[in-house]
Amino acid sequence: MVTAVEERKNKFIRYKNLRENPVKVLSGMGKTTVDAGKAKEAYTARDRVRDIADRDSFAEFDDKFEETDPLEFEGYTDKKEALRAETGLHDAVLSGTCTVGGYPAVLAVMDKRFMMASMGIEVGEKISLAAEYAMEHKLPLIIFTASGGARMQEGILALMQMAKTSAVIERFKEAGGLYISVLTHPTTGGVSASFATLGDITLAEPGALIGFAGPRVIEQTIGEKLPEGFQRAEFLEEHGFADRVVPREGMKEALTILLKLHSKESL
């Protein structure tokens, strides 16, 4: 017999779960595309940091940037200003140091509310700075990727961020650094084809769309519908490009184990 108090409590917990973890709750309802779409609305970079970093351990990197508008593209800086007010982020990456399950790490999280977390100079620079900080302080690097690709409004300099981030990450890895890449919905284009797919270890969230070309472009090119599940995280795992698909609720545990397995204490 469930008392009224217990019922209210259960209801509150369900509501809280729905609010904080929409993907988990919705994943029983069928299509992964729907879940991923909801997640896009609900789950911000700060939510991610809250769920991954140990309580009060996150120290944000306070990097200052000049306005980046190399093409002087109409409306671009205004758009960024508006998004800064809306998101509290200067651009699409939130980064800093923290501990995860007690293990120190550098954590960078992309936030798709900011122009689909497309990569312009500032995004490329923040990723590079995070990797360099990790290299300098001999810390593991964890990046949660999400991006529509290169930021068109920054033209060729956006494209060059692919080379820049890849070079910096490669140097970090060569120096013995551990880089864990976590692919979240969606990770496509120039981010997918640069630092996102250079992890020593690559995890992916269930149902996340991950690929170089967008599904619509591919369908137009080949003139047929794509099979269900194409370019999803599970598809990547099946084809050998992701180590593991890890659900959001198990992500912190997975990262903790991986950090433990690479920590000096475990040697």
Binding site: A163, S166, A196, F212, F235, H239
Partner: peptide, 14 residues
């Protein structure tokens, strides 16, 4: 895509 277009490009850049 199936055989890793993204992975081939990023590997080449690195």
């Amino acid at each position: 895509e199936m055989f890793g277009q993204s992975q081939a490009i990023s590997a080449s850049l690195a």
